[in-house]
Design a protein around this nucleic acid. Structure first.
Lengths: 129, 129
DNA sequence: TTGACATTACGAATTCCTTCGTATATTGTG
DNA sequence: CACAATATACGAAGGAATTCGTAATGTCAA
């Protein structure tokens, strides 16, 4: 099996990870309720996915309670960074400005948001010194 | 079948699209040669993928020559924009600055590259007026 | 023309992802 | 206790993606 610390989540797994990132450690029921707000999905489907993710080492499982509690094993930032880098390399050949340009074009972007991006660049550059 | 004009290419299809974007209309042999530089892949594997992509309407096929000539049907920018937007929404909930932050952190970033990002933002904002 | 070579067509194996049904186990309550 | 409600376990179906082998077909040169 692939190195577990650099495993790329599938689309379905990512949806679940985002719930866990938002809510913190959660039961199947809680994850299912959250996902149900935005899509039609069966309880056992969520359960199965969480079991698979646990088998992959992508989440940990605490079995102290009857309703097991799942938690993302890796920090959200780490996974997000990898996913961003993945699309950066695979689609844009590593060009960050190309990625940003197309991301901005993909949807309405306010001037305010651009301001925030500038601030972010300033902060980031400050970190480089 | 999904609407053909917003079909998301798979990982393998994307590799081929990038070759077609770079080279323009190409034969299977040409695509295969290009891909072979970076990975071990069989000729008929590339052929099959191109046939599938043609069936999906993702590429067009010109059969005038014995060696058919394939060409990406949609402009590269359009597809890239969708892929960027896809990761923007699915991973970062639409926050462009979060995407950028994680993309930059994902790998070494030069000050030069940050400069380019600033120019890109300037240009983009100019387009908003 | 015929044989070597290049090319396409196509089926099929394999793996992964997604989804869910059913069986089983546990818990709390009347 | 026994029943209803709530969990987990697990198999399996269906579909998509990937990969390649083999057969069929076309082309060119000796």
């Amino acid at each position: 099996m692939m190195n577990r610390s650099t495993m790329k989540p599938t689309a379905g797994e990512l949806e679940i990870l985002r719930v866990l990132w938002d809510r913190g450690p959660s039961t199947v029921r809680e994850v299912h309720e959250e996902l149900s707000r935005s899509k039609d999905v069966g309880y056992t489907t969520v359960l199965k996915l969480l079991q698979i993710m646990a088998a992959k080492g992508m989440v940990t499982r605490n079995e102290n309670q009857r309703a097991h509690v799942y938690e993302a094993r890796r920090p959200a930032d780490e996974t997000k960074r990898e996913l961003a880098d993945d699309v950066l390399q695979r689609v844009f050949g590593g060009s960050a400005s190309q990625l940003m340009l197309h991301a901005l074009e993909g949807r309405p972007t306010s001037r305010q948001e651009i301001e925030e991006l500038r601030r972010m660049l300033d902060d980031y550059e400050r970190g480089l010194r």
